[in-house]
């Protein structure tokens, strides 16, 4: 980017990240997660561990908050239930993973630009470039970035288990930040195939490990730029749009259950959640 380029295209570079920024997208992968169907079975999380070479850190480190679950199932109880016997109504589950924000707060703060926006609408994390200043994680409202606090690989996969590691991606060493990539290795394979066969990417041609593993199909994955994809249809049905947060939605309509977490921070998350329908009044 030369100075001349900057001066000539100043208004282009001045576009704010909240309204799309300067990115030229080929795809914008996104999700719709239906919390009403989610049973909290953790199979998405397990699939993620298997697919992405996530180390199992053990009880002690888990309790310290050093777990590496890119896809985690968060459990919430209503307050009055929390006081009394919550077992009857049970917890509410929320699968939380990197939201691949369009205006990601993690990106501008990285001192070495190890995290950046790809033309696929993803926040890529370059492990080799990361120096571990951890500002990205501090600036993430969802707290979905995980840091290699230890050399986990040393004890996570004892002898025969190392054979199960996914050869399509690396095993990370200590001092590096990592996070959900929407299974970028699968995206790569699919894109390479479509390029070879000279055809556009079909919806459902590949799925992320979590979406593939979900027994109730609560997780729908796809390209939100493709209007015919399942995920786009869901987004449109629930009147959730890309870009800055607006209050246009008619709240009265009970059919409209879609929302994006921390939408009001204008980070433009790529994941739409569908509210849980409750049996009882809260």
């Amino acid at each position: 980017m030369s100075l001349k380029n900057v001066l000539e295209n100043f208004s282009y570079f001045r576009q704010d990240a909240e309204s799309g920024g300067t990115h030229k997208y080929e795809h914008r992968f996104g999700m719709a997660i239906d919390l009403d169907i989610c049973t909290g079975c953790n199979s998405c999380s397990t699939a993620c561990y298997a697919e992405n070479n996530l180390p199992v850190v053990g009880k002690e480190r888990f309790e310290k908050g050093q777990a590496m679950h890119w896809m985690r199932i968060e459990r919430y109880w209503d307050e009055q239930e929390f006081e009394g016997d919550f077992a009857e109504q049970g917890a509410k589950f929320m699968p939380m993973l990197c939201q691949q924000c369009g205006a990601a707060t993690c990106e501008p703060v990285c001192p070495v630009a190890a995290t950046y926006h790809t033309p696929d609408g993803l926040n890529a994390q370059v492990y080799n470039r990361c120096i571990g200043s951890r500002f990205c994680s501090n600036n993430c409202p969802f707290r979905v970035r995980y840091f290699n606090f230890w050399s986990y690989y040393e004890d996570s996969w004892p002898e025969p288990l190392n054979m199960q590691l996914n050869p399509d991606l690396s095993v990370r060493d200590k001092g590096v930040m990592e996070k959900c990539t929407f299974c970028i290795q699968r995206i790569r394979v699919a894109k390479d195939t479509t390029q070879r066969e000279e055809r556009p990417l079909k919806d459902g041609e590949f799925l992320t490990a979590c979406a593939q593993a979900c027994p109730t199909n609560a997780i729908v994955f796809g390209d939100t730029m493709d209007p015919d994809s399942n995920v786009s249809k869901l987004w449109m049905k629930h009147q959730v749009q890309r870009g800055p947060f607006t209050h246009k939605k008619e709240k009265a309509n009970e059919e409209l259950r879609g929302y994006r977490v921390f939408e009001e921070l204008n980070v433009d998350p790529s994941i739409m959640y569908l509210e849980r329908v409750r049996d009882t009044e809260v």
Binding site: K64, G65, W150, K174
Partner: peptide, 13 residues
């Protein structure tokens, strides 16, 4: 050992 030795954790980066 890595920064886990300093007992840092996910919210407390």
């Amino acid at each position: 050992m890595g920064l886990g030795a300093a007992a840092l954790n996910n919210p407390h980066m």
